[in-house]
Nucleic acid binder design. Structure first.
Lengths: 412, 412
DNA sequence: AGGTATTTGTTCAGCGATTGAATTATTTGC
DNA sequence: GCAAATAATTCAATCGCTGAACAAATACCT
């Protein structure tokens, strides 16, 4: 049915230009090869005259640049290709996790132009101090970005927990945070990014959501609807529907970790019973594999597990199979409910996908009615570690692409 | 984050008017009281001049009409109120179900202007014959509508099964249909509705989806995101997110009936084990209550069950409690995943809501992490029987409101 | 009763953005 | 070297929104 979503407010004369700027820029961003103005005209349905005018604005605003003429056969004046600018606006991505801080800068084209990871156990650190360290890293990142001709126009912070609309971190259990007013704490420091109309200076969101956004914007472009599962200590899911992240009424969607897989099974800290997390969470897998559920940093534990599985260790293989089966039960339910055709295993699951995918797939085949007509793909995430930070920065860059008018108004 | 959804294609000069027509008409439809042109101007951000011009088009096209001046205190020229026209375009809703055919007509304001229900066991009837009977009823409905000054501009057909994008009914198990090409079968008959640009002549969809749409557009307006569960022989869910029905990648979302609630429990016809349908489906409840799972028509069975429960019959109460608990387990998972705050019990569940809601709520409280901060409402559907047919007709009418330009181009 | 303030709705010149056709620019192929 | 072809720009015409002035209709005040 897909009704055309009209812009929320009034459509004035100027909105016309705003919408067409976004339309053309979006096409340039989505294109496989640098398109010419003529390509854009046929693709968008606008006239070449209009496209030229729009492109002129985009060039003046450092959002796109002309590339070497794309090779073409046949007669005629050669086209000038248009690509997203490698100078101009860029997004700042921040991440606070249990055992590291991460900062990165992503440009319009989705390229990671700066990346810092600071490993440390953040659990004993007070939220304000953790954020202060992050700000230091971010300031260095901003200078690096400036040297590359990039201007930071917005920041997004990934946190492993539940976040309110206004940036209040309600609860990040594994980090030991509760009711941390991140925007207020960051307001103590000088602003990290330049203010641009239409782009929030800071967005705080769940790491699973931002990692899913990173997957959405990864090249080559994947499907527009998928389920992205981050298997860390908790299990979070980012739900991407029709190219947009679905956040739920309060922004707390994706709590797949507490889907019941054995309703009369092990009690869970959430108060329920038999939650997925008790069977496919990192601790559960590690314990089942016979590893000490010890002080190992999370990524070391999964690496160790992968090594053992690679070597054919029976306990590790059994643990992974059981976790995969539990995950499959939950995922099958989600697929039945949402009719998705792609499931991406991210976070700690990415490295274990070799062993997790088969049982997940077999549960899907057994439980999903429509699997016979429409096969479901299960694959590991293409992004590596710190996917959430990259996704966070990318979400800022995408916002400029979706609403270039704000940046242009600023840049003149 | 909610990026402004830009229209898919090019934004031309005329699109401006199209968008503003939709904007103004949408406001009139959403308003509690008939708004004046001045109200609309302040609400939309357009100037009064523009609103006047837009309203003139809407009046000429029989989409709105002027009502008696709304009473207002204070000085000033009295406003003329604007309401959705009770003559003009209307939607045709069709439904084929196991034991009845239903046809109805809904106008722009959402009023049901015609309603026919033809009770009959449709299982032994060939699809083509069932559709032929439906067409007869629809033709009578069209004449009735015409007498009331209504023009049918599109039809939507609700079917209890999986439907492809192109209207092919893949499987409707309880009806005994499989691979029924509905559009092709209906093409044999003279067209039921007038062709209007932008409005498909016929949409075929799952009954649970269309019932959810009916709930979405019911007055007074409810929340923009909710889960609507139709408990019939199978259990279907319609997922409404941000005011739009979510259909999934293939249009087969909402298969909540096969969410696992006891993964090692009773085998299900879907091939899985312990599916919700085995514990909260109509047959399961009726059997558990000790009623003959006999040839009772479905609505008689639920009515009987409600009677018994009302009278305090222990077996009935126990059956309903168990069904409600199973439903609650599944719903809690969905709420965790999608962060919804409203669950509507429709179809056969509506009449049993008194007994189903408490166990559903208690499972939600036990299993949903965020329930403490954000209470979840569980309530029966406001629409009665044949909700799917009403929702189907309403979805056509809503389409005119969302895209009035097509109708206006036709009507001159 | 009459005048004034107030609010509604319309009219009209001005303007921004798109359109479509004509024009210029640049290359390939004969 | 010339014609054909494709790319991009220029420019008058047009469409629809804006803002201000104006007309209409009522309540409130004296």
């Amino acid at each position: 049915m897909s009704l055309t979503h009209a812009p929320a407010g009034a459509v004035r004369q100027g909105s016309l230009r705003e919408l067409n700027l976004a339309l053309v820029l979006g096409r340039i961003a989505a294109a496989e090869r640098p398109p010419s103005r003529a390509d854009l005209a046929t693709a968008t349905g606008l006239t070449r005259a209009t496209v030229s005018a729009v492109v002129e604005d985009l060039l003046a605003g450092q959002l796109v640049s002309e590339s070497d003429p794309a090779p073409r056969s046949g007669a005629g004046r050669p086209a000038r290709g248009l690509v997203l600018a490698d100078q101009g606006p860029a997004g700042l991505g921040l991440e606070v996790n249990v055992d590291y801080l991460a900062v990165c800068v992503v440009d319009l084209a989705g390229q990671v132009r700066h990346r810092t990871v600071h490993r440390a156990d953040l659990r004993p650190v007070a939220p304000a101090d953790a954020l202060a360290r992050l700000v230091e890293l971010a300031e260095a990142a901003r200078e690096d970005a400036a040297d590359q001709g990039l201007t930071l126009v917005g920041a997004a912070l990934a946190v492993p927990g539940l976040v309110d609309d206004d940036g209040l971190v309600r609860l990040a259990p594994n980090l030991g945070w509760s009711d941390v007013p991140v925007p207020a704490l960051l307001a103590e420091h000088p602003p990290l990014v330049e203010q641009v109309p239409g782009v929030p200076a800071l967005v705080v969101d769940n790491e699973a959501n931002l990692a899913a956004l990173g997957e959405l914007h990864a090249r080559p472009p994947g499907p527009a609807s998928f389920l992205h599962i981050s298997g860390e200590v908790g299990i979070g899911a980012g739900i991407v529907l029709d190219g947009a992240l679905f956040r739920g009424v309060r922004g707390w969607s994706g709590e797949i970790g507490h889907l019941p897989v054995h309703p009369e099974g092990r009690p869970c800290r959430c108060g329920g019973q038999g939650c997925l997390e008790q069977y496919a969470g990192q601790e559960a897998i590690v314990t089942a594999a016979g590893l000490a559920r010890a002080e190992l940093p999370a990524d070391t534990a999964t690496a160790r597990l992968a090594e053992l599985a690679e070597a054919g260790d029976a306990a590790a293989l059994r643990a992974l199979h059981e976790a995969g089966t539990a995950l499959g039960v939950a995922v099958a339910g989600v697929v039945n409910l949402l009719d998705l055709d792609t499931v991406v295993l991210g976070g700690g699951y990415a490295a274990l996908a070799t062993w997790l995918c088969p049982p997940v797939l077999s549960e899907i085949d057994a439980r999903v009615l429509t699997a016979a007509w429409s096969p479901v793909t299960v694959r590991p995430s293409t992004l590596g570690a710190e996917a959430a930070a990259v996704g966070a920065a990318g979400s800022v860059a995408r916002r400029i692409i979706a609403q270039p008018a704000g940046w242009l108004a600023r840049a003149g």
